[in-house]
């Protein structure tokens, strides 16, 4: 899929999550997302960026503007070399949390985007890719 523009951010501290939110908002606006679309994408980005800090001790986010069959979208890829997720189905269930949170980060952000792809290898890390189309 053709990529028009991309940028990678390091996410290691809670302040970095704020930067991910700001960048996601900027990119959403430049794609012409409505306020509701922007808010959903920024909220999903916030949840997944926080997961990098809380669960993996840090990671990276790649932002990409993509083109497919005459539509454009924003793709965000969250990658870490953390402990990984042994049971992805369990991790995607509402209310499941390994860190005492609300358990809405993964399951909730999946509902806020058009595409959600997760792959993880225990002991090696996790990669989550989300897309929202204009």
């Amino acid at each position: 899929m053709p990529v028009e523009r991309n940028e990678t951010l390091a996410v290691n501290r809670s302040e970095d999550v704020v930067l991910v939110r700001a960048k996601t908002r900027d990119w959403s606006i430049s794609l012409g997302f409505t306020i509701v679309e922007q808010t959903k994408m920024v909220t999903a980005a916030s949840e997944l960026a926080r997961n990098l800090v809380v669960h993996a001790g840090g990671g990276t986010v790649r932002l990409e503007t993509i083109n497919s069959e005459q539509r454009r979208g924003l793709r965000l890829t969250f990658e870490d070399q953390g402990p990984g997720i042994a049971d992805i189905q369990q991790a995607l269930r509402d209310g499941f949390s390994s860190k005492g949170g609300l358990g809405l980060g993964l399951s909730g952000s999946k509902r806020l985007v058009n595409e959600f792809d997760i792959s993880s290898t225990p002991g090696e890390g996790t990669r989550i890719c989300i897309v929202r189309w204009k």
Binding site: V36, Q38, T39, K40, D94, G108, S109, R111, L112
Partner: peptide, 14 residues
């Protein structure tokens, strides 16, 4: 609370 925030909160499951 902004309307877009309210919509997103509900979809998030909060």
């Amino acid at each position: 609370m902004r309307p877009a925030v309210a919509i997103t909160l509900v979809e998030l499951g909060l």
